[in-house]
Design a binder for these strands. Structure first.
Length: 778
DNA sequence: ATAAGTCATTTTTTT
DNA sequence: AATGACTTAT
């Protein structure tokens, strides 16, 4: 069995410690790896795959599932570094993307077209909104988001609409909440998605499970195919994911899950720690490996993390340790107000940068909610430190991008109701709400799809004034459909963008924002071109769709077509786009910091009611999840950790006073070193706070109304004026449209924000003298 | 049809 | 404080 070169070949395992190596070499049978933060979890996963390949396992028999595209890409790249191009044939992807592929191959079994569309959250909610309206329910009681969450939770627990309506407990819950029709909404929603040939994100799991349950031949095919299954971030899986994976692993039983119960922070989207407990129950013979040595952080930080997490009752016993240096004590910053916190944090950051000669990107400022970023942005701008805030409006969520995608989606699948409604009157072609309303009613009445009604609008909507426009629209889309079938993705998309009138509409808008939108659409088209060229390039590598023995694993649309492109793109998100490696301070929520690490970390806003959140203090479970969130935040730090809190802050426009977070007490006092003794005895008076717009002079701010300070008075802002916005910085008003409070100003802001269009109502703009523009940048 | 006024909402996020 | 959704007035 062992080749003569065995020892040479596996010498790469020398890069691992004993525990890691054991976990890598235990390839057969069920395995659970509990991996603490910074313990080399990704390393173990990649080496495990590399080791399997070295053992002669065919790459396409290995299935590795992750939560994010980024994690999947990283894993593939790292295996490729170890094993070369063989890594390309690995089945690595997110749960959603892998399942989407498998579902495409067998969609017809479930009555779906192979080119089914995937509804994102917006699509789902907009569909629900229309259903709620149609069923004449109050949309304050049945908010689309609430209903969607409920449906999503049901699907993630593999509860279908019939089960839901039959479930006494669920029905009682809904009745108690005053929403007795929830089950009916669920059923109608599922039916509408089905008719539209659409699956939402949760369907990719729910329908996958259905496929495997209803069709034993499909199940056994994949059961035999995937010899080794690996799952990353197991603590974040939901019941549906776990059940599916168990089914797939049932023949070979080579299932390896890697996770850390102490880092489970996604219960609000269905993840359950119980999966980790169930794993032990379901696989009694499973082998357990614990990776507890931390290579990331100083002893101070590791000790603080352990202290903190020991307050949680619900946990598998595990204590991380490290051989790293003691490091410096954790610093505590106590600020008077949110603005003060911004100043103290930025000052400390600046000092640390100068003192230890660090780069900007060595710093991360982590907060509980997005709204907290403002104060830090303001002060970072003031000291000229470049920064980037994670989590703005996603590219693929932008209106203009979604509009074009809707046209493309329609060309592939005209039954897609959400896309149809999105573009039927955009650009305006005289098909108003009334016609659409009528068509929807007719569709309901005749049990037809919206598209089918419109196709024969003369029959179903006799005498409707806009029938001519509808017919024209329908034949246009049919034309697009032909083109999508005959030409490649880029040609088809360009044609559709032009001949739908979308491009012209955007081109006509010469405002700064309009130009941006036009550019965004162009960028989307460029992306499509890139994709097409790559797919159709001579000698393009075969995607891992075909196994070595020639078996086609799944059929997808022909490469390079619009249909194929849409399949690839739907599951991409912003974080998968331009991964700018520029030297900037990073600002983000703790949730999005998971999986990352930084030399210096600031965890800010450590106040009761904010972190832990007010809404998380109802039950012990929720509080423990907040604590795990703090644990995640603390363990992002490699060398220096700063914690900060403010005595008072504005929330929802009101001044609130909060006690320091209980989490600060839970980290041993001896580990904390106060940077400045500033905790006030008495509550500060609101007047004492630094206002949002502090003069640049650095002199203490004196609160007195000045003639050039007009916070709310939009009438005073005129074109050509130099202004300062507390968040976006300095800029020049280029253009003003509209009247009164709906006036919109186009303001060319200086870097890093760039030109930006903002509503002036309530906007806190400060008029500044022209010369301050030159000397202040962000 | 457009402008102006009212009201409700407000965690975290991936796919 | 800041928005988005919705309603009322002209």
């Amino acid at each position: 069995m062992l080749s003569p070169d065995y020892f040479y070949e596996v010498s790469f395992l020398d890069a691992l410690n004993a525990a890691q190596r054991q976990a890598v070499e235990a390839t057969e049978g069920p395995v659970m790896i509990v991996a603490g933060p910074g313990s080399g979890k990704t390393r173990v996963l990649t080496y495990r795959i590399a080791y399997l390949l070295h053992q002669g396992v065919d790459a396409f028999r290995i299935l590795a599932l992750t939560f994010t595209n980024k994690a999947a890409r990283e894993m593939r790249e790292r295996v490729e570094q170890l094993c070369g191009s063989e890594a390309r044939n690995l089945y690595i992807g997110t749960f959603h993307s892998v399942f989407a592929r498998l579902l495409r191959a067998h969609a017809q079994r479930l009555g779906f077209p192979p080119e089914f569309v995937i509804y994102d959250t917006d699509d789902s909610r907009s569909l629900l909104k229309s259903i709620i309206k149609q069923m004449a329910l109050s949309d304050t009681l049945y908010k689309p988001a609430t209903v969607h969450n409920r449906i999503s939770a049901a699907k993630n627990s593999l509860i279908g609409p019939e089960d839901y309506l039959r479930d006494v407990n669920l029905m009682a819950d809904d009745a108690a909440a005053g929403r007795p029709r929830m089950g009916d909404l669920y059923a109608e929603y599922v039916m509408r998605c089905f008719k539209a040939g659409a699956m939402d994100f949760d369907d990719l799991l729910y329908r996958m499970h259905q496929l495997l349950t209803k069709f034993p031949d499909v199940l056994s095919r994949y059961q035999y195919h995937f010899r080794y299954i690996l799952i990353d971030e197991f603590q974040d899986t939901n019941p549906a994911q776990y059940v599916i994976v168990r089914k797939l692993a049932d023949v070979h039983q080579n299932i390896c899950v890697v996770g850390d119960d102490a880092q489970s922070i996604y219960s609000f989207r269905g993840a359950t720690l119980e999966n980790m407990l169930h794993f032990e129950r379901d696989y009694p013979e499973r082998r357990l490996f614990k990776l507890e040595q931390n290579y990331r952080s100083t002893r101070h930080i590791v000790r603080a993390a352990n202290r903190l997490i020991s307050h949680n009752k619900l946990q598998l016993t595990k204590e991380i340790w490290t051989e790293n240096a003691e490091g410096e004590p954790i610093r505590l910053l106590s600020a008077l107000s949110d603005n003060d916190e911004g100043k103290m944090v930025v000052d400390a950051l600046f000092e640390e940068k100068m003192h230890a000669h660090r780069r900007n990107r060595d710093f991360a400022i982590l907060y509980r909610t997005h709204a907290q970023s403002r104060a830090f942005e303001e002060h970072l701008r003031r000291v000229n430190l470049p920064y980037v805030v994670y989590g703005g409006v996603a590219f693929y969520q932008r209106k203009e991008v979604k509009d074009l995608l809707a046209y493309l989606r329609l060309a592939v699948n005209p039954y897609d109701e959400e896309s149809l409604r999105r573009v039927i009157n955009y650009p305006a072609r005289g098909i108003g709400e009334t016609s659409l309303e009528k068509a929807l009613v007719a569709a309901q009445e005749h049990q037809l799809r919206l598209w089918e009604v419109l196709e024969r609008c003369n029959t179903y909507l006799p005498g409707n004034r806009s029938n001519a426009a509808i017919n024209e629209f329908i034949s246009k889309i049919k034309g697009f459909r032909l083109i999508a079938q005959q030409q490649n993705a880029f040609e088809a998309a360009t044609h559709i963008a032009r001949s739908s009138g979308l491009l012209q509409e955007l081109y006509a808008d010469k405002s700064v924002e309009g130009v941006h939108r036009y550019e965004n659409v162009q960028e989307l088209l460029n992306g499509i071109k890139e994709y097409t060229d790559l797919q159709l390039a001579p000698g393009a590598e075969a995607a891992p769709h075909v196994t070595a023995d020639g078996e086609v694993l799944e059929l997808t649309s022909p490469a390079g077509t619009l249909a194929a492109y849409l399949q690839e793109i739907t599951l991409l998100t912003d974080q998968d786009r331009d991964d700018e490696q520029s030297d900037r301070v990073l600002l983000m929520t703790i949730h999005s910091a998971k999986g990352l690490e930084f030399p210096c970390v600031f965890v800010v806003g450590l106040e009761e009611n904010l972190f832990p959140s007010l809404l998380s203090q109802n039950s012990r479970e929720e509080l423990e999840e907040e604590r795990r969130l703090f644990y995640v935040a603390v363990t992002r730090a490699q060398q220096k950790l700063f914690l900060s809190h403010a005595a008072a802050r504005y929330r929802y426009g009101e001044l609130q006073y909060n006690e320091p977070s209980r989490f600060l007490r839970e980290v041993d006092d001896s580990l904390l070193q106060r940077l400045h003794q500033r905790m006030p005895r008495a509550r500060p008076q609101p007047e004492a706070f630094t206002p949002a717009s502090q003069p640049l002079t650095g002199k203490p701010y004196v609160h007195q109304p000045s003639p050039d300070f007009v916070p709310d008075d939009y009438e005073h802002i005129t074109e050509g004026m130099a202004v300062e916005h507390p968040r976006f910085g300095f800029g020049k008003v280029e253009r003003i449209e509209g009247k009164s409070r709906d006036r919109i100003a186009t303001i060319a802001f200086q870097a890093p924000v760039g030109a930006k269009r903002i509503m002036l109502r309530y906007a806190r703009l400060r008029i500044v003298r022209e010369e301050s523009l030159g000397k202040s940048t962000g």
